[in-house]
Design a protein around this nucleic acid. Structure first.
Lengths: 162, 162
DNA sequence: TACGCAATGTTATAAAATAACGCTTTCATT
DNA sequence: AATGAAAGCGTTATTTTATAACATTGCGTA
C-alpha cells in the first residue's frame, strides 16, 4: 500500500517535505516539457504549506499576503495554476471539501483514496490494490466501465482518536 | 449487493418509481415523527424526476416553473428541504457534482457507492460488502477511524458503452 | 386564547468558479 | 536579431452555489 499517512499524521520537518515535493514537481515538468512557471510554483508551494487541504480562496489570500503589499493575486490566476497542477497530477482536488492538496507521489500510477480527519483537518493519501479491486468488482457486476473514481473517507486520524 | 442499477439504466415506468419512493418516504417520516411537509415533498419529487442528479438551482428552477406563474421558489427554501431530506437519508449529495439524487433504499443500513455515467448522466447506487470491507482494511492499516465515506465512480453505464 | 416552536418567506450577501478580452512573455523559425 | 504564433498572465465582470439574518405564518399544546 502506497501512503503518506506517516508524514501526514506526525510532526516532521515539513520544509523538507515541501522541498522534496518541489523537486519532484520540477523534474516531472521538465520531463514532460511543460512549464512550472513562478506563479504555478508559488501556488504549488502554498498548497504544500501543510498536510491540510486549502480552498482556492485560501490560496488567493495566502499568496496575496505573501507577496508585496501592493499586489493582489486574483482568483483567475490561482484557478489557472490549479488547473495546470491538476492536469499534471501534482495536486488533487477533494470534492467533498472543495479544496486542494499536494500529491505525495506524482507520476506514479495510483488511484486516489483520501483519509480526511474531521478533527485536525489532515489528509493522507493511500493507494491500495484490494480497494481498487473491490471497486472494479462492484463496477463489473453492474456492467459499468470505470474511468475515474473519487474515494474520500472521513473520520479520525490516529493522533485525534485520544 | 444492493443496487438500483437495473432501474437507473433501463427504460421503465418511472412514475411508479417516484410513487414507490414517495410512499417509502412518507412511511419513514411518519415512523420517525418528522414532518414531510408539502414543500419538502415537492422538492423530493423534483429530485426523483429522473435517475439523474439535480443541482440545487435546477430544483429551484423546476419548482418555480411547476408552480403558479406568480410565485417564485427561492434558494433558501430549497436548501432547507434538501437539508431535511439529507438528514433523513431520503436523498444523497454527490460531492463531485454538487448535486442531489434520491436514495432508492432509505432506512436500510448501507454505505453509499455511486456509479456516475459521464455520457447520459445517470447515477446508480450500490452497496457492496466487499467494497466496504476494503475501505475498512485500508483505514485499519493506517489506524484511521472511519466515520463516513464518499465513493463516486465515474465512467460509462452499460447503455452508453455502445 | 395565548404561548412556543417549527416551517417558510424575504432580502441580502458570502463563497466558489469562470467568461471574456487584452497585454506580455516565450520560443521556434526565419 | 526579427517575427509570428501560442502560452501565460492581468483585469474586469459575471455566473453559480450556498448561507446569514430576520420577519411572518402555521400549528399543536397548555
Amino acid at each position: 500500500m502506497l501512503t503518506n499517512s506517516r508524514l501526514a499524521y506526525h510532526q516532521h520537518d515539513h520544509k523538507r517535505c515541501i522541498n522534496a515535493a518541489l523537486n519532484r514537481a520540477r523534474l516531472l515538468c521538465d520531463d514532460r516539457q511543460v512549464r512550472l512557471t513562478p506563479i504555478r510554483e508559488a501556488v504549488f508551494k502554498t498548497i504544500w504549506t501543510s498536510h491540510r487541504p486549502l480552498g482556492a480562496y485560501d490560496i488567493v489570500d495566502k499568496m496575496t499576503l505573501a507577496s508585496s503589499p501592493v499586489k493582489r493575486i486574483l482568483p483567475p490566476t490561482v484557478y489557472r495554476s490549479i488547473e495546470f497542477l491538476l492536469e499534471q497530477g501534482l495536486i488533487h482536488r477533494l470534492a467533498s471539501l472543495n479544496a486542494y492538496i499536494g500529491c505525495p507521489f506524482p507520476g506514479s500510477d495510483h488511484n486516489d483514496v483520501f483519509l480526511i480527519c474531521r478533527a485536525c483537518g489532515s489528509v493522507a493519501e493511500c493507494s491500495a490494490e484490494y480497494l481498487n479491486t473491490a471497486i472494479a468488482q462492484t463496477a463489473t457486476r453492474t456492467n459499468f466501465k470505470v474511468e475515474s473514481q473519487v474515494v474520500e473517507i472521513v473520520g479520525l486520524c490516529p493522533e485525534c482518536q485520544s
